[in-house]
């Protein structure tokens, strides 16, 4: 049994924790932007955009129906062909972005649809441009509906990044495996990492629920 309680182990776990957070925060933020773009694209009417709408539909439906593990493998090989210098962490972050964008597109879409149609139609009659309708009429109202489930989704994704261990990214789950392979007891190694995950996820989850209550109160329930 090698020593578990040491500064070496602490530094190792801290680095892994950093990579878990990096994948979640960067990946989900990019995913939210991409997802918002997809949701908006799917709600356009322009005929010329029809092929793009189909692509958006395939993206959203496809990425929500393939396991994250398989998406990780797929992104790995795809990236090898286009950007061979991207790090494994970058590849995993891209996989998070693509997966999250599919789910977040649905969340954003539900928020957009929650804005009463007559409002959009009257804005159109008043001659507001597409952009003005979006920024001045739709988003201010949709925001409160989108943010709570989007935040909850991101908190949930902290845990899904554990699968990036299979790519060779030394994040929390993989760091536990490495420690256990070095002779640390499985209960201690995996138990410690379980606590670390709970330590991130639980407060963030509380914050997300608080956000939901705050914003929910604004939208007279």
């Amino acid at each position: 049994m090698s020593a578990f309680f040491s500064t070496d182990t602490a530094a190792f776990l801290a680095g892994a924790l950093g990579r878990t957070l990096w994948m979640t925060i960067i990946g989900c933020t990019l995913g939210l932007l991409l997802g918002a773009g997809l949701a908006l694209l799917r709600r356009t009417q322009l005929r010329a955009l029809a092929p793009l709408r189909l692509l958006a539909l395939l993206h959203v439906e496809g990425f929500r129906r393939v396991p994250f593990l398989v998406i990780l493998m797929f992104v790995l090989f795809f990236v090898q062909a286009v950007a061979p210098d991207l790090s494994l962490l970058g590849i995993a972050t891209l996989a998070v972005t693509l997966t999250a964008s599919a789910y977040l597109a649905e969340i954003v879409g539900a928020g957009l649809d929650a804005v009463p149609r007559p409002q959009v139609e009257s804005a159109q009659v008043l001659g507001l441009s597409w952009w003005d309708r979006l920024v001045r009429v739709v988003l201010p109202q949709a925001w409160g509906v989108i943010l709570p489930p989007a935040a909850a989704f991101m908190v949930m994704f902290v845990k899904d990044t554990a699968l990036a261990s299979q790519l060779g990214v030394v994040e929390l789950a993989f760091s536990a495996k490495i420690l256990v392979n070095k002779g640390v007891s499985p209960l201690l190694g995996y138990g410690a990492v379980l606590l670390l995950y709970a330590g991130i996820s639980w407060p963030l989850g509380r914050a997300a629920r608080l956000l939901e209550k705050r914003l929910g109160a604004h939208r007279h329930r």
Binding site: K159, D160, Y190, L194, S201, G205
Partner: peptide, 22 residues
């Protein structure tokens, strides 16, 4: 519910598979 929903399923199964034999 708090423990399950705040930790990854993968690590939960790791514990069942690798730590229970202890």
């Amino acid at each position: 519910v708090a423990i399950i929903t705040n930790t990854p399923a993968l690590v939960q199964i790791f514990l069942l598979y690798y730590a229970l034999p202890q």
